[in-house]
Amino acid sequence: MGTVLPADYKRLVEAYGGGLFAGMIWLLEPGCPDPMLELVAQTAEREEILAELWEAGEDKPSELQEGGVRLVPWGFAEGAGHYLYWVVRPDVEPEEWTVILNEGRGPLWEASPVSCSQFLLDVVAGTTSSFYFTGLDDIIEPEDRFRFAPNSEFHGT
């Protein structure tokens, strides 16, 4: 991928591995045998998809207007298709990367000035300010709200 990953993400993957948080957010994992959940494969795929969208005329979010900024996906929302990215800026340490969401079925973007682990915690705890993850109690079963399901539950890995 050509970059060092944030320490908080590394700790998440070391502690949990990839998998499903709160019945809704998939955490991508390096080395996962499922390419849909594998960090490096999804980085390459999302770069290609976004390049095609922007070439076709879709507007880039303002966070990407400065030179040398790139996106690296770290998760996505089950069902909705929202992708969660780090905003990777030149000369900005990985621990300072923030999250940006691209809605799954449209051109809208939502920036969150937090790390990926803080974003996940806010969603699970119900304290998120993200438009796309408020009101989860209406769509997530109560027993799933605080549950983590590792990839092995779904793929036998």
Results as ranks from 00 to 15, higher is better:
Gly2Asp: 03
Val4Ser: 12
Val4Asp: 14
Leu5Asp: 05
Leu5Lys: 07
Asp8Gly: 13
Glu14Thr: 06
Tyr16Trp: 11
Gly17Met: 01
Gly18Trp: 02
Leu20Phe: 06
Ala22Met: 03
Gly23Ile: 07
Leu27Gln: 10
Glu29Arg: 05
Glu29Cys: 15
Met36Thr: 14
Leu37Glu: 04
Leu39Arg: 02
Ala41Glu: 02
Gln42Leu: 13
Glu47Ser: 14
Leu53Met: 08
Gly57Arg: 01
Glu58Lys: 14
Lys60Pro: 09
Pro61Gly: 02
Ser62Gln: 12
Leu64Lys: 03
Gly67Asn: 12
Val69Tyr: 00
Val69Cys: 05
Leu71Cys: 09
Trp74Thr: 10
Trp74Gly: 08
Glu78Phe: 05
Glu78Ser: 11
Glu78Val: 08
His82Pro: 02
Tyr85Ala: 05
Tyr85Gly: 01
Trp86Phe: 04
Pro94Glu: 11
Pro94Gly: 09
Glu96Arg: 11
Val99Ile: 13
Asn102Gln: 11
Asn102Trp: 06
Arg105Pro: 05
Pro107Tyr: 07
Pro107Ala: 14
Leu108Met: 09
Pro113Gln: 08
Cys116Gly: 12
Ser117Gly: 00
Phe119Asn: 05
Leu120Thr: 01
Val123Arg: 06
Gly126Ala: 07
Thr128Gln: 13
Ser129Cys: 08
Tyr132His: 15
Tyr132Cys: 09
Gly135Pro: 01
Asp137Ile: 10
Ile139Cys: 10
Pro142Tyr: 09
Arg147Phe: 08
Ala149Asp: 13
Asn151Phe: 10
